[in-house]
């Protein structure tokens, strides 16, 4: 990786409800690039974003973001660091009691003392960037799923962050909405010089826009590199995930007892 790391995770261990989610994850996320974090469902991809954002504390290990060790930051410093971060949640997480305009204006009103006319201009510029300037007066309940995510994207870039994290941005989207989101993620990264972390299990879309990708499984990084490097990765599990094979190192069958015993035909020739 030619860029310096904006985010560094070193030997991160994280457990929840007695289950070990991360078992010593080590990962560098380069500055100004799009990095996709992929992996089967339930491997803790969203949890990883929450660890990076300081919403969850790891049991051990180091999480460095922009030179700050996130788990050790005081509450005030953590909130200050988050002003440099944007996060697009899977549900969009718009505030349902205020309009699209007010949703995008929210971080500006809270964190700046800009005059109202300037806030209006910035909000309209951000909405224009996601193609929804005309939807400024709509309420979140009047938006489609794709529009909700675009408004949420406009809100997350309102303060011109250095880092933006996307949590399953393509999940449940129709092909057009997915294409729009892919274009937006790519364009925003190049025009704003953002460091983008994209969590997804939509392999073709993610690999088409990311500069680097890593695959998480069983609490560890099992493969990392450029999309081309991953496609030719020696690990069978990485190849199974990327090609979407139903059986392989991740078995089709959930572990169960002997089928002959379950079906009451023990001794019979199966």
């Amino acid at each position: 990786m030619e860029s310096s790391a904006y985010i560094t995770l070193k030997d991160v261990v994280f457990s929840r409800s007695g289950r070990r989610i991360f078992d010593g994850i080590t990962l560098d996320i380069p500055e100004g690039k799009i990095t996709a974090i992929m992996g089967p469902s339930g491997t803790g991809k969203t949890t990883l974003l929450r660890v990076i954002g300081g919403q969850l504390k790891p049991d051990s290990g180091q999480v460095m973001v922009a030179g700050h060790e996130v788990p050790k930051l005081k509450r005030k410093d953590l909130y200050q660091l988050r002003e440099k971060m944007g996060m697009l949640f899977q549900s969009g997480a718009l505030f349902t009691d205020i309009s699209v305009f007010e949703n995008v204006a929210f971080p500006l009103r809270v964190h700046t003392s800009l005059p109202e006319d300037m806030i209006r201009d910035i909000v309209l510029m951000k909405l224009e960037a996601v193609g929804l300037r005309g939807a400024r007066n709509l309420m979140p309940s009047e938006l489609s799923g794709g529009m909700t995510r675009r408004v949420a994207l406009a809100r997350s870039i309102a303060l011109d962050p250095e880092l933006i994290m996307y949590d399953e941005p393509f999940a449940g989207q129709d092909p057009i909405a997915m294409g729009v989101l892919v274009k937006l993620i790519r364009d925003l990264n190049s025009s704003m010089g953002l460091t983008s972390v994209l969590v997804s299990h939509d392999v073709p879309e993610s690999l088409s826009i990311c500069h680097y990708a890593c695959i998480i499984a069983d609490g560890k990084v099992i493969g990392a590199g450029t999309p081309d490097e991953l496609r030719n990765h020696p690990s069978e599990l990485v190849r199974q995930f990327l090609s979407g094979q139903p059986d392989g190192p991740v078995p089709f069958h959930y572990p169960a007892s002997d089928p002959a015993t379950d079906f009451g035909i023990k001794g019979a020739l199966l």
């Binding site: 929450r50 200050q80 988050r82 971060m85 944007g86 996060m87 549900s91 997480a93 809270v110 809100r155």
Partner: peptide
């Protein structure tokens, strides 16, 4: 449930205060 509190946290706004 709709992640509005989480999104507020990630915007650097403390939901306990707000």
């Amino acid at each position: 449930a709709t992640e509005q509190l989480s999104s507020m946290e990630m915007m650097g706004v403390d939901p306990l205060r707000r």
